[in-house]
Amino acid sequence: MRPHLPTALGIGVATGVYGGSFGVLAVGAGLSVAQACVMSLIVFTGGSQFAAIGVIGAGGSPAAAVGSALLLGVRNAAYGLSMAPLLPAARGRRALASHLVIDESTAMARAQDDPEQARAAFYATGVAIFVLWNLGTLVGAVAGGSLDPEQYGLDAMFPAAFLALLAPQLRQPGAPTVALVGALIAVVLVPLTPAGLPVFAAILALLVVVRAR
């Protein structure tokens, strides 16, 4: 565990600040402080949380918000599959550890060579992020009421964060095409459909890879 602590804490602190901006934006989108905090505790996957409040903030329906957020969370299922061999065998602890299956913990685990190190990196990163993401959310949500998100450019953090999440995923074969088609679907649908639907519909871009086979 020890060699991973500095990196894990670094990622955790960064996530804490990012969690602060989530708190601010969540309250700005109309969530209560309690809702913002509970979301970070029990949803605990940043991309989906930002997607959900983004749709809500734009006036989309709860169904569109939950739908887009869950579709975005499908990548966690892929992470869960690859992390499964590292998680504890006991059902209860395995269920608890599953909650920590997110982008950063999976990436840190995958960067290790041996399974023991991978397991340590997974927990160090997952726990550090869980603690600091939730602290950040609380601070941001409480402070949020008195901040104008646009004045501080907080709304511009959304696309930047999604770009940072997207970049490493573009190395997969076919990914750049799927990204372009997804973006195109969304842009075309924005003026035509209710908020939230364009993002949801972008998943259809996956058909391009299926058909190309």
Binding site: L81, L165, I185, A186, A205
Partner: peptide, 15 residues
């Protein structure tokens, strides 16, 4: 599964 997030993230960025 691995590709599922790609079109959504791209769509979120442009939207």
């Amino acid at each position: 599964l691995g590709l599922a997030a790609v079109p959504l993230l791209a769509a979120l960025i442009v939207v």
